[in-house]
Design a protein around this nucleic acid. Structure first.
Length: 722
DNA sequence: CATAGCCGCCTTTTT
DNA sequence: GGCGGCTATG
């Protein structure tokens, strides 16, 4: 290894071998730029070029050159990536202690530290999607609006977009000039008030509040800028406005920002990521040194050629070639399967064969566009006895019993969290029903006290009779008793809750029904014990806030020998010897929800496919199913337009029926599928939006390219498929 | 007050 | 196909 760092023995050798190879290929000027301590640096490079390796190397190099690790802040896209960077920096001999985390975790730290300045309390809850949904529903209700026009999802999306652009309620209300925006402004305001009442922040608030704090408070800005003299940001192409502001404020005084990214791998536009952040880097920091890494150390030339051909179809990009460094390998395989069951079985069988040929399962992954596709794959893997792991980290924390347990913890940490409180007040059933809750609620509102405080003073609630009053008292006593124990280890507290809440009792008496839930809670206690052991400064508040920021890939166990199943989004930043991408069909990839007429949306879908393809080191398998069950109905599919862009000469392959499959595909019943292109004599070309099968009188709804949407009777319309 | 059963809406992707 | 929310019943 070069001048500054040497990996300690026996630590993930290939990663360091690659780093060494990469460093050898850097020009002297590039090497100097990477190691140069002062000034802005942008590492602009394609997939598999070692961006993360370079940034990790720089981190270690800074420490080796005498910079205190305390003064370094590295930002990764996921907690998992942060953990890996920490390990690798340590292996490079750079002692731990640098702040390495995601933007969200960093913001939680900042907000806790400056809670008073921000006007929040340190024990704030962090609300996930379902808790957000509850709040937004309440907000729409409070504003006395029709949920038909202001659906929770629509409102949340709109509010999230505003927050990502740093537009707060006040600013938005001032801008609002039509019915929709003024109404949305009201909902936004109401939603924020509800969050505040619950002493809660949503994901976007974490970024928004931290960005506003840094922007508006120069003292805090200076303080943090002094603390973090060097800022490193990985995956910069996926930062949004708020994250950009945070980064800018943090480096205001010293300008030592180092970002890495690839505009072609920007896949989070829908979440507010602004590709201009990376495109304008040199404008934002005019003295920036830009290092371009053009060689790809990951994939075979065959794979890179496809990726290159595909991404070339994006018009809105700076042309960039991927330069292969590896020897040619196998050609990519595109397979058409009869339906999704054949596809899943086919993939499973190929993986089985690979395993027989000596390929390790952990070097194999299957990617798909939507999580719903994982089920049929999972079934096929079970049937074929292939060990696998599905990368969906929130799954565990979304289980009912786990959320119940966590709600108890949340109530203890944050007494104002009414959503958590309502979840546990009658879980397990203790006879406190809707009527009782409403009565207490009314009392709380009338006296302007919190719901929990009202529960403590049921004497005042005249509408309550003796029975419910006693039941509430028992509940309050239990919570109060538990509250006295919140300072100790989280695991012990979790166990106490398990027993004293009656959850254990309820599950045990449920017999075999409660078996899984019992196991899960035991696992939760184990996880909490692990937290107690490993956290820097363990506390209940920190624990809850940390697990709220748990992400999908964080659950990915790289040590076990199992095939990995994940969405294309989750695949970002990873690499595998063998990659299978399934469901490469119109409507799925690109996804139907992306507006086909919106070129930008389509290009992002293409980038997503590009990311998937470029994860593959040696073997790439793409597939689609000719028929796919969608919401219980069998639909005819169309191969993705992207398949034609790969330059493989893909036209259409005969479906593989597979001789040893024990599954017979059902006969397709639908003559017209959603997404099918058709031609009409008068209206011209259009896309099928809906097909209503009523036999002879079946109708189709078609969106024509002229912009108009028509519902037509099939027997009269004389539509031809294109 | 708890539970079973039914209806309607829906999800793209995630920190 | 599945979950949340609503209603009817015990």
């Amino acid at each position: 290894m070069t001048e500054c760092c040497t990996p300690t023995q026996g630590h993930s050798p290939t990663w360091f071998l690659m780093l060494e190879k990469l460093l050898q290929k850097l020009t002297t000027a590039q090497k100097k730029a990477v190691l140069h301590k002062e000034g802005p640096l942008l590492v602009l490079a394609g997939p598999g070029s070692g961006k993360t390796r370079v940034i990790t190397y720089r981190l270690a190099a800074l420490i080796h050159s005498g910079v205190s690790c305390h003064n370094i802040c590295a930002i990764t896209f996921t907690n998992k990536a942060a953990e890996e960077m920490r390990q690798r920096a340590t292996a490079l001999g750079a002692a731990g202690g640098a702040h390495i985390s995601t933007f969200h975790s960093l913001c939680v730290r900042i907000l806790r530290r400056y809670a008073r300045t921000v006007g929040i309390r340190v024990n704030f809850s962090i609300y996930n999607a379902s808790e957000q949904a509850r709040c937004i529903k309440q907000a729409v209700k409070d504003c006395e609006l029709d949920t038909a026009n202001f659906s929770p999802a629509r409102c949340l999306n709109a509010i999230s977009a505003l927050k990502n652009k740093l537009i707060d309620t006040k600013t938005f209300a001032e801008q609002a000039d039509d019915f929709f925006t003024t109404t949305l402004a009201k909902i936004y305001d109401c939603y924020q008030r509800i969050l505040a009442d619950n002493n809660a922040l949503d994901f976007d608030d974490l970024l928004l509040k931290a960005a506003q704090l840094l922007q508006d408070n120069s003292e805090v800005c200076t303080e943090l800028g002094t603390r973090f003299k060097y800022l490193l940001i990985d995956e910069y192409q996926d930062t949004n406005r708020a994250q950009y502001i945070i980064a800018r404020c943090l480096v205001l005084a010293h300008n030592n920002i180092c970002a890495t990214g690839d505009p072609d791998q920007s896949i989070y536009r829908w979440r507010g990521a602004d590709i201009r952040n990376i495109l304008d880097f040199e404008t934002d920091w005019p003295d920036a040194v830009v290092v371009k890494l053009e060689e790809n150390f990951r994939s075979t030339p065959n794979i890179l050629q496809l990726a290159d051909n595909l991404i070339a179809a994006n018009k809105n990009r700076k042309p960039k070639k991927l330069i292969a460094t590896r020897d040619p390998g196998d050609d990519a395989v595109i397979t058409a399967f009869e339906d999704e069951k054949y596809e899943a079985t086919g993939v499973a069988e190929q993986i089985k064969q690979l395993a027989k040929d000596g390929v390790s399962l952990k070097d194999t992954a299957v990617f798909y566009r939507v999580n719903a596709e994982s089920r049929v794959l999972e079934e096929a893997f079970i049937k074929n006895k292939i060990p696998y792991q599905i990368i969906r980290g929130t799954e565990f924390y979304n289980r009912k019993e786990i959320r119940d347990m966590l709600a108890y913890l949340k109530v203890l940490a944050n007494g104002d969290d009414e959503i958590a409180l309502l979840r546990i007040i009658n879980t397990p059933a203790r006879g406190i029903g809707k009527t009782t809750i409403n009565r207490v609620r009314t009392y709380a509102d009338a006296n302007n006290i919190s719901f929990y405080n009202a529960l403590k003073k049921t004497d005042g609630v005249s509408s309550l009779s003796k029975g419910p009053r006693a039941k509430i008292a028992v509940f309050v006593d239990m919570v109060e008793a538990l509250k006295k124990d919140t300072a100790g280890p989280v695991a012990a507290l979790t166990e106490r809750i398990f027993v004293e809440s009656g959850i254990e009792q309820a599950l045990k008496s449920a017999g075999s029904e409660g078996k899984d839930a019992l196991d899960n809670i035991n696992e939760l206690i184990n996880a909490a014990a692990n937290y107690d052991k490993t956290a820097d400064e363990p506390s209940l508040i920190d624990y809850l806030q940390q697990i709220s920021l748990f992400s999908d890939v964080d659950s990915y166990d790289t040590a076990v020998d199992r095939a990995a199943l994940m969405t294309l989004h989750a695949a970002k930043g990873l690499e595998f010897g063998n990659v299978f991408i399934v469901g490469v069909e119109e409507g799925l990839l690109p996804h139907e929800r992306t507006d086909a007429e919106d070129e930008d949306d389509l290009e992002e879908e293409r980038r997503l496919f590009f990311v998937g393809i470029t994860r593959a080191k040696s073997r790439l398998h793409l597939s689609y199913a000719r028929y796919r069950t969608f919401r219980g109905q069998l639909l005819r599919t169309i191969p993705s337009q992207f398949l034609y862009e790969l330059g493989t000469g893909f036209e259409s392959y005969p479906a593989q029926t597979g001789s040893d499959l024990d599954y017979e595909p059902s006969e397709p019943v639908r003559p017209f599928a959603r997404g099918q292109l058709v031609h009409h004599n008068i209206f011209g070309v259009g896309t099928i939006r809906e097909f209503v099968d009523t036999g002879e009188n079946s109708t189709v709804t078609v969106k024509f390219h002229t912009g108009q949407t028509k519902t037509l009777m099939i027997k009269y319309a004389n539509l031809t498929r294109i």
